[in-house]
Design a binder for these strands. Structure first.
Length: 656
DNA sequence: GTTCGCCACTCACAGGGGAC
DNA sequence: GTCCCCTGTGAGTGGCGAAC
């Protein structure tokens, strides 16, 4: 029994951005009828819908349904998500995205065209629906939106059985509908609940933090003698600089490509500031693309402030110029943090002090879950920020994090016993590689953790970046750039680059990817190359993605690293999603208590009553490790011992 | 009628934040 | 190296009114 559902809503921006539900449309596949509900009739819908959902064969069909179901719960069921949604929702967006993940266009109108040859006019969608008297044109539009689902259903039935070959396991076939259901569909009700429940935030602390940051921001601006507008606008900043620091202009302050204004981009500033450094000159000669992340203002600033810089850059700049640059960069950093605070504030539900991010179960191309409004996964790791997120009254937050999971997945796929042994021995892979790289015993470096914690952290972060970069095909030049501040010459970097690939089984992994990538499957995938995660999630790659040049060092196409990346990031997402799924099952059977609050790539945050902290923490820990181990073990014939770091406390900072 | 400046708006893109 | 989200910028556009 099928019912397709769609809603129309409009945004109300005050006091906090909120979606106002205007219409609900339903299409019954049994009755062949479309029903349109306006706010005055919402309540009449609640009871029959709930009763209908209790029938075992009922399925609600949606397209990008998170928003629809959240609004439905808010307006019909007093913000309590229906338990009956569980196992009774099918989202076509998720399904289409899984089987056509290479398609840039994946929207409703696109699939209406493909499946039903219907050209939709989506311009009507943008109107203000609230309290609208419907015109004939409107009614046609609303009807069409739910009616089109019958073409979606027919399409899925036509392309069944959607089988594909797993790139990493001997099992021959996966059924795609089943896989989509197991990995993604079943999580829908959980994330609806998640959005409705929200995450508590310490509003006073946020106000305080915002205040402190903006005060500091104002102070540094004042110190510079700049107004906010002059600081923010390239045009005004150029005028100001011409007036106040003509000598810096003469020294070649970088310019924007199009308008010729003074540029404030990290790349330009980085190149410019370091142009006097001889190591940098070597970089320049290599025509390096300086777009790596480590050139953010924060890092650039730390380089400027570095006392023991291998080669001081202040021979090029006068002392007062150095001071100006330092202040300028720290102002940039402050502005960034301050904006981040304001963005958070903007999304707070004022009466409850909660955030209600919108979750996208298949938001990332690799299958990762993403969140927006606000981007909860992009909150800085600093204590200042993480401690703002707190448990509700009489509750605690349980934060669990899969340690170095992507490297472990890499090692499992590559069949790299060496790496897995190091990990099993409880050693830190990043420090392990640092010891090879710096030719210093592992123990000696590890001692630094207590002797010189900051230095240790810095080294570890650096090696962390290097290790991840290396897995994903970072070239020698890029590696060299990242190591510039350590004063290591190009030849040495080149040998380290080689050593890394030899120490860890990277070349073997790339070969496996190449072989896996060549596998073609049946049905829909006939004309496409395909690579999957260990669990079977597919990524389609078109011919021109570079199979001919795959891992040909002289010409790696841009798309190749993303092919190499996919099985790793995707498998990590699968582990997390499977854990969430089993956690929900346990919850349904009342075996655990708690609400899923946040998932972030390798991390999971659950809120539970304080008195049940241990009873929730322990099974969650067991779940993550056992699910991770079992998924990875199907790729390599040896035991895997995934480690999960766990923290219990009042705030998210518990494990930061 | 044309030109110009101003304003509001949209859109693409770069850059910066995060994760691994 | 990959994967994201959010913001600000600047180019482009169109409406409007004032000045020519």
């Amino acid at each position: 029994m099928l019912l397709s559902l769609d809603t129309e809503y409009s945004m109300d921006k005050n006091p906090a951005p909120e979606k106002i539900l205007a219409f609900i449309q339903l299409y019954s596949f049994e009755l062949h009828e479309v029903l349109i509900f306006s706010p005055s009739t919402f309540k009449q819908l609640a009871e029959p819908l709930e009763a209908w959902l209790q029938k075992p064969t009922s399925v609600v069909l949606v397209f990008f349904g998170n928003t629809d179901l959240v609004l439905l719960s808010k307006n019909l069921f007093n913000s309590q998500p229906l338990k009956e949604f569980s196992g009774h929702v099918f989202d076509f967006f998720l399904f289409f995205r899984m089987i056509h993940c290479d398609q840039r266009v994946n929207n409703f109108a696109h699939w209406a065209r493909i499946t039903g040859n219907i050209i939709l006019d989506k311009t009507l969608q943008k109107q203000n629906w609230v309290e609208k008297q419907l015109t004939t044109q409107d009614i046609t539009y609303l009807t069409e939106d739910v009616h089109i689902f019958k073409y979606f259903v027919a399409y899925v039935r036509n392309v069944l059985p959607l089988n594909l070959t797993n790139s990493w396991r001997d099992e021959t076939k996966h059924n795609l509908v089943v896989l989509s259901y197991q990995l993604d569909q079943v999580l829908i009700p959980s994330f609806v609940e998640n959005t409705l429940t929200g995450i508590c935030i310490n509003q006073d602390a946020l106000v305080q933090l915002t205040h402190n940051l903006s005060q500091k921001y104002d102070q540094t601006l004042k110190k510079l003698g700049l107004s906010q507008a002059e600081f923010q606008s390239n045009k005004q900043f150029t005028a100001w600089l011409t007036e106040n620091w003509p000598e810096l202009l003469h020294k070649g302050w970088p310019q924007t490509a199009t308008s010729g204004q003074c540029s404030t981009s990290k790349e330009g500033l980085y190149k410019w500031i370091y142009s006097s450094n001889s190591t940098f000159a070597q970089l320049n000669a290599l025509e390096l693309d300086a777009s790596a992340n480590h050139t953010s203002p924060k890092n650039l600033l730390s380089l400027l402030e570095e006392d023991n810089n291998p080669e001081p850059i202040n021979s090029f700049f006068q002392q007062d110029e150095m001071q100006f640059l330092t202040s300028y960069l720290s102002t940039k950093v402050l502005r960034g943090q301050s904006t981040q605070c304001q963005t958070l504030s903007k999304h707070i539900e004022p009466t409850k002090s909660t955030l209600h991010p919108q979750w996208m179960i298949d938001g990332g191309d690799t299958g990762r879950i993403t969140a927006k409004e606000p981007a909860i996964q992009q909150i800085p790791r600093d204590l200042d920020f993480r401690s703002l997120f707190k448990a509700k009254q009489n509750h605690v937050l349980i934060v669990q994090d899969l340690a170095m999971i992507e490297l472990i997945i890499f090692a499992s796929l590559a069949g790299d016993d060496n790496m897995l042994d190091i990990f099993d021995q409880g050693q830190d892979l990043h420090i392990y590689f640092a010891s090879i790289f710096l030719n210093t015993p592992y123990e000696k470096l590890f001692q630094q953790k207590t002797v010189n914690p900051n230095g240790f952290k810095k080294l570890r972060n650096l090696m962390k970046n290097v290790n991840f970069g290396m897995v994903y095909l970072m070239g020698v030049k890029s590696l060299f750039q990242r190591l510039i501040e350590w004063g290591i010459d190009y030849d040495k970097v080149e040998s380290v680059h080689r050593a890394w690939r030899n120490t860890f089984n990277a070349l073997h992994y790339y070969d496996l990817c190449k072989a896996a990538y060549s596998v073609r499957s049946t049905g829909l995938f006939n004309n496409f190359h395909l690579i999957t995660t260990i669990r079977g999630r597919p990524k389609r790659c078109s011919e021109d993605d570079g199979i001919q040049e795959f891992f040909n060092q002289s010409s790696i196409k841009a798309s190749v690293p993303s092919i190499v990346n996919f099985p790793i990031q995707g498998t990590c997402a699968d582990i997390l999603k499977t854990t969430v799924r089993v956690f929900l099952l346990l919850k349904q059977k009342s075996l655990v208590e708690g609400e899923l609050l946040i998932t972030a790539h390798d991390e999971i945050v659950v809120q539970c009553p304080s008195k049940n902290a241990v009873e929730t923490d322990k099974p969650l820990h067991t779940l993550l490790t056992s699910i991770g181990n079992s998924i990875l073990q199907s790729a390599i014939d040896r035991p895997i011992h995934i480690k999960v770091e766990s923290g219990v406390g009042d705030t998210w900072a518990e494990k930061a």
